[in-house]
C-alpha cells in the first residue's frame, strides 16, 4: 500500500526545504517525539531515515521536513500532492524521555534540524517544562517554523551565520550566554553533525561553564532501522557498540565521538555525488524542476 502525499509546502525561501504531510495512519497512531521513519520513494530507491516532525493521530498524517542534499531528497522534492511514496516504515527509534525538569530546557535546531525539535519541544512543554529555543541556519532563508516553535517555547532566539536575521554567528553563541548565566537542566541539539559536536563540547564542562546534560539526534546512514545492518553504529567514548536506530536516535551527546562519526558519514560521498549528478542530468533532459 503506497503512502500518499496530502500536502507539500515550501519552507523558507531557499527552494531546498519542504514540508510534506503523508497519509500513514498506522505510523501516525504510534508516533511520538524522537521517532523517525525510513522511506523508499520508488522501486530503485534507497532507504533513507527522516524524523517525524509532527503527527496527527485522528487524521492519520505524519509530517516530514526534507532538505535537498542528494538524489533521494531531490527526487522526493519533485513529488507533489497526490503522488505516492512506495514505502514508509515506522515509527522507528526510541521515544524521547519526558519529565518535568527543575530548570529550563534549551532546544537547538540547526537548519532542517529545526523540524525534529518541534515535537520534542511540544512534548516537553506539555510535561511542564520551560523551553528556550535557538533556531540557527546559514542564512534567514533557511529558517522556518518560527511561529510553530514560538507556540511551544518561552523564548525563541534566531541565529544566522551571515547575520541576515537575529544573532550573527553560530548557535553556540547564545547557548554560551544562557548556560553561563542561568541554570539549565537539559540541552537538546538537532542539526548538522558539526553543530551537534560544537554544542556537546560547549556543554561538557569546559572552561568555567557548567556541564549540562545534552541530547543529540543522530540521523546516520541506515538501511533497515531495526538493528539488523549495523550501518548506523556510532563511535562512542564508552567503548561500547551503539546503533543510532535502536539505541537512539536521541543519545547522550557527551559519549559520541563526533570526529570519527563525521568521517564515517562521508564513506559513500563519491557515490552520493555520482547518483546526484546523474539525476540532475536526467532532470535537465526531462525538464523536471
Amino acid at each position: 500500500m503506497p503512502y500518499r502525499i496530502l500536502k507539500k509546502v515550501q519552507l523558507g525561501n531557499s527552494g531546498t526545504l519542504f514540508e510534506m504531510d503523508i497519509y500513514a495512519p498506522l505510523i501516525a497512531k504510534k508516533a511520538y517525539a524522537g521517532n523517525f521513519v525510513l522511506i523508499r520513494i520508488n522501486e530503485t530507491g534507497e532507504r533513507i531515515p527522516l524524523t517525524i516532525a509532527d503527527y496527527d493521530r485522528e487524521e492519520g498524517i505524519i509530517t516530514l521536513v526534507i532538505q535537498v542534499v542528494g538524489k533521494s531528497t531531490l527526487l522526493l522534492s519533485h513529488q507533489n500532492e497526490g503522488d505516492e511514496i512506495l514505502d514508509v516504515v515506522g515509527p522507528l527509534g526510541n521515544n524521547i524521555h519526558t519529565e518535568k525538569y527543575e530548570h529550563p530546557i534549551v532546544i537547538i535546531g540547526g537548519g532542517v534540524g529545526i523540524a525534529p525539535c518541534y515535537p520534542q519541544a511540544k512534548e516537553l512543554k506539555q510535561a511542564g517544562n520551560m523551553i528556550i529555543s535557538i533556531l540557527g541556519a546559514r542564512t534567514k532563508d533557511l529558517i522556518f517554523w518560527r511561529e510553530r516553535m514560538a507556540e511551544v517555547s518561552e523564548k525563541v532566539i534566531i541565529c544566522t551565520n551571515d547575520g541576515t536575521e537575529g544573532v550573527e554567528g553560530f548557535v553556540t553563541k547564545p547557548l554560551r550566554d544562557i548556560i553561563s548565566k542561568d541554570k539549565i537542566s537539559l540541552v537538546i541539539a538537532i542539526g548538522p553533525m558539526i553543530m551537534m559536536k560544537n554544542v556537546a563540547e560547549l556543554t561538557s564542562g569546559i572552561e568555567t561553564l557548567p556541564k549540562v546534560k545534552t541530547f543529540v539526534s543522530l540521523n546516520t546512514i541506515m538501511i533497515d532501522g531495526t538493528g539488523m545492518c549495523g550501518g548506523c553504529r556510532f563511535p562512542a567514548k564508552d567503548g561500547q557498540i551503539h546503533f543510532a536506530c535502536v539505541d537512539g536516535p536521541d543519545v547522550d551527546g557527551h559519549i559520541v565521538d563526533f570526529d570519527i562519526l563525521l568521517n564515517r558519514e562521508k564513506r559513500f560521498s563519491e557515490f552520493e555525488k555520482k547518483s546526484y549528478d546523474l539525476y540532475k542530468k536526467e532532470c535537465k533532459k526531462f525538464k523536471i524542476e
Partner: peptide, 21 residues
C-alpha cells in the same frame, strides 16, 4: 548483514540504476 542487505535486498550491485551504493 549490511554488506549483503545492500547488495541483495537493495541491489547495490546495480548502482547507479539502483540508488543504494
Amino acid at each position: 548483514n549490511e554488506f549483503l542487505t545492500r547488495t541483495n535486498l537493495m541491489k547495490a550491485y546495480k548502482f547507479p540504476e539502483y540508488d543504494t551504493p
